[in-house]
Nucleic acid binder design. Sequence first.
DNA 1: CTGGATGCAAAGGTTTTGCACGCTA
DNA 2: TAGCGTGCAAAACCTTTGCATCCAG
Lengths: 130, 130
Amino acid sequence: MIVTDKKCRKSQQRKVILDELQKSTAHPTAKQLYQLVKKRLPDVGMATIYRNLDHLEKNNQVIKIGSKQNETRYDGKISKHCHLICRDCNHIIDLMDVDKIIIKSKELKQSKFKIDPNYAEIFGTCNACC
Amino acid sequence: MIVTDKKCRKSQQRKVILDELQKSTAHPTAKQLYQLVKKRLPDVGMATIYRNLDHLEKNNQVIKIGSKQNETRYDGKISKHCHLICRDCNHIIDLMDVDKIIIKSKELKQSKFKIDPNYAEIFGTCNACC
DNA sequence: CTGGATGCAAAGGTTTTGCACGCTA
DNA sequence: TAGCGTGCAAAACCTTTGCATCCAG
């Protein structure tokens, strides 16, 4: 579902932030984005970056990678399994019985990326949050 | 590859931290683990929790969930795609051409978890780090 | 004009580090 | 006894928030 915020104003800052993020392929951090934006708007503040990233994410113009929680979580089970992570409540479900994760992608083959089968995080919405 | 640290000592603290983590199914944060450990070792400090979690992770006894980087990263591409994340260098590769991710798991079906196809993070090692 | 957006500075959280002391092997 | 591990406190980070001011619509 795409939410369009009718009350939002298109400030220079917001435009530049979105533009820099769309131009980049590096998946930058807020700080890196700040450096990029600062080149075009030297007076920009860090708070503006964060506020706009939140705003843009809520309006589905930007993706925040990973869990929305900013505390690291740990798992004492080291046998092969993967995690389902609820983007709403941060609940994590273990999938212990996954034989194989099949991803059909040419880019994956070309990338020569070596998938660690113990480590996949699949995001979505858990039963309680649906 | 399993790395066993020959110089490590089995302090009470380390044993209790590992034990609590293995008993838990909640994927606790460092702080939550601290509360659990504190019940058994009232004088334990937060630094001990963090140092041991690092140590245990390096020895493959504990999994740190998510990217090892603790800064949030953002993506300006909102079309459906998933991410390959290198656990060594934190490089993120976009897979734009994934039709479907197939996960064979009974637990997944039972969980009624609703996967967001735009959001999968597959961890491993990138070409440069192999 | 109006109220959303900004910049600055301060506060809030999490994680790391320095240091003297304690404890395992 | 050697040197790894601990607890405490301070520091280092990342992110959020309060407030006066600015500016887009």
